[in-house]
């Protein structure tokens, strides 16, 4: 568990334990725009988004460097499933994560608590619990969660816009002059949008629903459990987002592309992409089962249904085959 995760978990489990909280989040994943992966000191410097802010980093099993939380004030509408809208006032936290100095993620989340307040309070009231926004009125938690996960609604409307907030973290990092801004592989940014209903009285097993959207590169994750599950869930979403991006990139940006070029005998231009995938993407596959027994349970359940690791292995083998095949062909020419 990283430091930022810890403090945010505290925000959700702290004073608001009495009532059910809804946590909404969004994680975007993309490639760091640099020719080579960054070494640890450079990554730590890159993740220092604000002066003086501490950066958390772990070397094993994969290098993961996490920026301090950024904070953004909101006072906006919340779309409710089934009926109407509500208003939330408070702050959203976001942070950047780099994995092995190669993959960049922007993660935003907000804990929503219903307090029944009719009027907005002084700003210091909201700063007391960063990352928390108060809902005016008493909407049903499920309506808040499902309203956020409604696939039919554009993520960037007039209501709460975590898409832009998580995007901004990524743009802030990618604009850093420390990067050389060359793109070794062009791949889609993938998005995981998640909502959790955290009920202190939730006695049954936690429930997780994962949905792949029709829109490419977009997944929805809905969770129901106890407030104490938040730290695990938060990390699960980031880990899932990274693995989903890896899998999708391997398939779309590497394999599909290579097969296409193979058919048109243009693979020569793509050989470096295959090498890139094998040398720099494959080692990033590291399911987070080591983190906690609970995480292991969830990841194993995910694997049971999706066979992610199995598919990734197959992709890796195919990429290696293509490289070997092509290697032979180019030597013949």
């Amino acid at each position: 568990m990283s430091a930022p995760t810890h403090s945010r978990a505290a925000a959700a489990t702290g004073a608001g334990t009495a009532a059910t909280a809804v946590v909404l989040g969004e994680v975007r994943t993309c490639l760091l725009q640099n020719r080579d992966p960054l070494a640890t000191p450079a990554t730590v410097a890159l993740m220092r988004l604000t002066p003086g802010a501490p950066v958390s980093h772990v070397e094993r099993p994969v290098r993961r460097v996490v920026s301090a939380d950024q904070i953004c004030g909101i006072d906006c509408g919340l779309r409710l499933a089934r009926r109407g809208r509500s208003r939330a006032v408070g702050t959203v936290l976001s942070h950047a994560i780099t994995t092995s100095g190669r993959v960049l993620q922007g993660s935003a989340q907000v804990t929503l608590t219903a307090v029944g307040a009719a009027e907005r309070q002084a700003w210091r009231h909201y700063l007391r619990r960063p990352g928390t926004a108060e809902i005016m009125g008493w909407p049903h938690p499920a309506d808040v969660a499902d309203g956020f996960l409604d696939a039919a609604v554009p993520a960037r409307g007039l209501d709460l816009d975590l898409a832009s907030i998580s995007d901004r973290v990524i743009e802030a990092v990618q604009a850093d002059p420390m990067l050389d801004h060359s793109t070794p592989l062009r791949a889609r940014t993938s998005v995981v949008r998640w909502a959790a209903i955290l009920d202190p009285g939730h006695d049954d097993a936690a429930v997780m629903h994962l949905t792949k959207s029709v829109a490419p590169g977009l997944h929805f994750l809905r969770f129901q459990g106890r407030p104490a599950d938040l730290a695990m869930l938060d990390r699960f979403c980031e880990e899932f987002a990274r693995h989903e991006w890896l899998l999708n990139t391997m398939q779309e940006a590497v394999l599909d592309r290579a097969e296409r070029d193979l058919a048109r005998d243009l693979l020569r231009e793509h050989l470096d992409k295959l090498g890139f995938a094998l040398n720099q993407l494959v080692p990033l596959w590291m399911p987070p089962t080591h983190l906690s027994p609970q995480m292991k349970t969830f990841w194993t359940a995910l694997e049971d249904q999706t066979r992610y690791s199995r598919i990734f292995e197959r992709h890796t083998t195919r990429v290696r085959d293509l490289r070997d095949q092509f290697g032979l062909r180019s030597r013949r020419n």
Partner: peptide, 16 residues
Amino acid sequence: PARCAQLFLKLDREFD
């Protein structure tokens, strides 16, 4: 110009 550069860089990450 800085905002435009950000847009071009972002698209360059995803589009050929």
